[in-house]
């Protein structure tokens, strides 16, 4: 949540107004901070690990996840994944690529980032069968957002009922 921090503190406010200002709701201090999304730290921590993989990590010629792929993955997640939900698993590929995965009761979803704007997304549900449906995407991830929303819908309904 972004909040404006005023430049004048309580002491200065007292000096300006002559009032015995102890506090003022208009000047409650808040800090400008990065968006707080529950999955963000876990995902960035995992990506940092994958950016540091040593050559041959897979027993062959595997290289570390490429930085541009990691940043693109974050951008995609920020677009398609609402704040609350299960943290995705992230698996490296051999050539700097990566795959974002969820495996839930409602669906399996895998987003393979081969490179920026080169994505293969796949999902399997009871309706699609185990081989699922796959799409190739560049910059429009509306279908993935829908898949994730459908995957999370039963969880949201359960929370609402419990409340």
């Amino acid at each position: 949540m972004e909040v404006w921090r005023p430049s004048v503190g309580i002491e200065r406010l007292r000096a300006l107004t002559g009032a015995n200002v102890a506090s003022h709701s208009a000047f409650s201090s808040c800090v400008v901070s990065a968006p707080v999304v529950p999955w963000h730290k876990a995902v960035t921590d995992r990506l940092e690990q994958l950016l540091k993989l040593s050559k041959g990590w897979d027993g062959y010629d595997g290289v570390a996840v490429r930085f541009e792929n990691a940043t693109f993955a974050i951008k995609v997640l920020e677009l398609v994944f609402p704040g609350h939900g299960p943290i995705p698993q992230i698996v490296p590929g051999a050539t700097g690529d990566l795959q974002i995965e969820w495996h839930m009761d409602q669906a399996d979803i895998e987003i393979h980032v081969l490179g920026p704007y080169r994505v293969q997304a796949w999902r399997a549900t009871a309706a699609t069968g185990r081989d699922g449906e796959e799409v190739r995407l560049t910059n429009d991830f509306a279908i993935v957002a829908r898949w994730i929303n459908e995957m999370l819908e039963p969880r949201r309904a359960a929370h609402t009922t419990a409340a």
Binding site: D58, V91, H103, M104
Partner: peptide
Amino acid sequence: RISEQQIVQDK
């Protein structure tokens, strides 16, 4: 060969 990095949890 299968790396530990390629292991995930199922549902």
